[in-house]
Structures are given as structure tokens and as C-alpha cells.
Design a protein around this nucleic acid. Structure first.
Length: 235
DNA sequence: GCGACAG
DNA sequence: ATCTTGTCGC
């Protein structure tokens, strides 16, 4: 069975087929708070590319939810199988994320993924797709909106405005740091909108991005080693 | 029909 | 995402 087959079931590889699969999987998303509250461990995921795009590189960082200190970090590399198509990001990056997840020897209580959750045209951004296929509670933290409209949140840390898909609220634009563009936060799976925003704010310290995603970012792009010594770093 | 469009 | 230095503003 192909890598895509193992991840995407009977997807025929077409754009139309991918969109149809998204609609089907989106029905399985739960917005109920099903995570251990408070979470003890967090995992942040992000993707980068090597070899002029030929290799997809996924990074995962496991953190202590109380101290926000990293406990483990891994990098997985898989051949890039698809180009970037707006709205179909997960079909390009999810296989690498799942490979990174398997390098973890512990199931995290909560996952943060760089990208959209349900703030997506068919309500299945990569964080929601990740949550449905893994069963893990997840949140999408994107740096830019995709298919939503929102008013700019106020200037203070914690200020937020609803993300609207038509007339439905699918997440929040969150000012995580003054003078920075708001984060685009939406639930992935097993997390409510309010909890998603509250948690992302809680895990944000002195930077724009919350620690889990920020550290995974540094590891996924080829310029970052993690700040702390003394824990295992694969990849 | 046209433009916009996570990473 | 990636190619890439300095620079302006708080």
C-alpha cells in the first residue's frame, strides 16, 4: 500500500476526491472538550522542506504543559508527494506529521499544529484532519487566515474577535502579542472554540507564537536548534 | 467570470 | 514553504 493510501484511505488522488474526503472527515470533527484538563503534555508540529522541496521535513516538540519546557524533539523526513494547493494543505503535509508523531514514545494530551483547524472552506484544515485521523485533541494555530472574515482584534495581548465562515464562528483572531498580527486560532478536534483560544494564549510567552508551535517551527526550518540542552533530539 | 488563497 | 540584509519602529 502506498504512503498516501495508508494515510488517506481510498482517496483516488484527484483534487475533487480530496475535497470530497475533507467533507466526509469534517463530519467526524468534535468540538466538545475531550482533552485532559489541564493538559500535562503538549506537542507542537510544523513542516519545512529540503532538497528544493523534494523532501518534506516534519518537526515535533513535546513540552511540559506547566513549565513549557521541551522534553523531547524529533524530525521526520518523507518524500514530497504533492504540490501545495490552497485548501488541500493536509494532503501534502499530513504524512510527514504522522511520521513525526510515531517518533514520539508518549501520546501528548494536546496537540498544536501550524495551520488551520476548522477555519477552513470545508472545515477541515490540517489541524482538524490530524485530530480526526489520530484521535488526539488538536488546535490549529495559523499565521494567516484562509477563508474567514474577521474584524481586527484590539491592541492588547488577549484581545480577540470571532473568525466567521459565513455567519458561523469557527475560531478567533487572537492578539497574542502587542504590535504583532493576530494569530488565527481554531479548534482541530476534541477542543471547543473558547478552550482553543484560552489554551493558545496560555501557552504564549514572550513571542507571537505559542511555545509548542514556535519550537517546532525552529526545528522544521533548518535554522533552529532548541534552546535547552539535555534532552533527546532526533533528526 | 475574476480574484484570493494555510504552508 | 523558500530564496535573503539591512532596517525601521516600539
Amino acid at each position: 500500500m502506498s504512503v498516501a493510501g495508508a494515510v488517506f484511505g481510498d482517496w483516488d488522488g484527484s483534487i475533487a476526491g480530496a475535497r470530497a474526503l475533507q467533507v466526509e472527515l469534517a463530519r467526524q470533527v468534535s468540538l466538545r472538550d475531550g482533552f485532559r484538563d489541564p493538559p500535562r503534555t503538549l506537542a507542537g508540529f510544523d513542516v519545512g522542506f529540503e532538497d528544493a522541496g523534494g523532501t518534506t521535513r516534519a518537526a515535533v516538540v513535546l513540552l511540559d504543559a506547566d513549565t513549557l519546557q521541551p522534553r523531547a524533539a524529533h524530525v521526520a523526513r518523507v518524500p514530497t508527494s504533492m504540490p501545495y494547493v490552497p485548501g488541500l494543505l493536509s494532503f501534502r503535509e499530513l504524512p510527514a506529521l504522522l511520521a513525526a508523531l510515531e517518533l514520539l514514545d508518549e501520546r501528548p494530551d494536546l496537540v498544536l499544529v501550524d495551520g488551520q483547524g476548522i477555519a477552513h472552506p470545508r472545515r477541515l484544515g490540517i489541524a482538524a484532519h490530524f485530530g480526526v485521523v489520530t484521535g488526539l485533541p488538536s488546535i490549529g494555530v495559523a499565521k494567516k487566515p484562509l477563508a474567514v472574515r474577521f474584524d481586527p482584534p484590539g491592541p492588547e495581548r488577549g484581545d480577540r474577535t470571532p473568525l466567521l465562515l459565513g455567519d458561523e464562528r469557527v475560531g478567533d483572531a487572537l492578539r497574542s502579542k502587542p504590535r504583532c498580527n493576530p494569530l488565527i486560532v481554531s479548534p482541530g478536534h476534541e477542543v471547543s472554540i473558547d478552550a482553543a483560544t484560552r489554551l493558545v494564549l496560555r501557552y504564549t510567552t514572550r513571542y507571537r507564537l505559542p511555545e509548542p508551535t514556535r519550537l517546532a517551527d525552529r526545528l522544521a526550518s533548518r535554522r533552529g536548534a532548541l534552546p535547552l540542552p539535555g534532552f533527546d533530539t532526533d533528526g
